[in-house]
């Protein structure tokens, strides 16, 4: 519980510091499920808010920015990796965002720039930021939820959907 509270608090601080507006950006619609799910298991998607996370000018390679999406209680990380990666947006297809609440037991993941992974201090799980949050090793039964991103004409980066269930909530949008 404590870890998560800290995590959420961290998310909020970062949120205020970067002065991100909370109003939904008009005109960006959540896209439908893009791949992978067997039709039979798919449930109806929730309505995701679109939310501005940062401007591309704010990002530097390998310097993680703490964000929150779809709401303040769901911390994540925004990353510019400097090379095209799975789910990456931007001119270089290198900007990605992930939940940093470990899908195993909800501990806050740490970003390790040396190998571009998110690591869980709770039970040692590891996720690859360059491979769509693939669990390299660990206990979670899902790969890390990745936030789907869009960039508008001003270079503002918006989160618009999530591709896995976020730990600690039975609906990604509460």
């Amino acid at each position: 519980m404590k870890e998560c509270d800290r995590l959420v608090a961290l998310g909020r601080r970062q949120f205020l510091r970067s002065g991100v507006a909370t109003a939904a950006v008009v005109g960006i619609a959540a896209s439908a499920a893009e791949h992978g799910a067997r039709a039979a298991t798919s449930l109806a998607r929730v309505e995701y808010p679109a939310k501005r996370l940062a401007n591309i000018k704010d990002l530097k390679v390998d310097q993680p920015v703490t964000i929150a999406y779809p709401d303040d209680d769901s911390a994540g990380v925004l990353l510019k990796l400097g090379r095209p990666v799975e789910g990456g947006v931007g001119r270089d297809n290198d900007i990605v965002a992930f939940s940093i609440i470990c899908p195993h037991q909800g501990f806050a993941l740490n970003y390790i720039a040396a190998d571009r992974t998110l690591n869980c201090p709770g039970h040692y799980s590891r996720f690859d930021c360059e491979k769509g949050g693939q669990e390299i090793w660990g206990h979670a039964t899902q790969n890390l939820p990745q936030f789907k991103l869009q960039i508008d004409a001003q270079g503002d980066i918006h989160a618009i959907a999530v591709d896995e269930l976020i730990y600690g909530r039975l609906s990604n949008v509460l």
């Binding site: 992978g36 491979k131 769509g132 899902q142 039975l170 990604n172």
Partner: peptide, 13 residues
């Protein structure tokens, strides 16, 4: 591609 279920909501017991 990394496998994702695209499940974003589950039934509440």
């Amino acid at each position: 591609m990394t496998y994702k279920r695209n499940v974003d909501r589950l039934p509440i017991p």
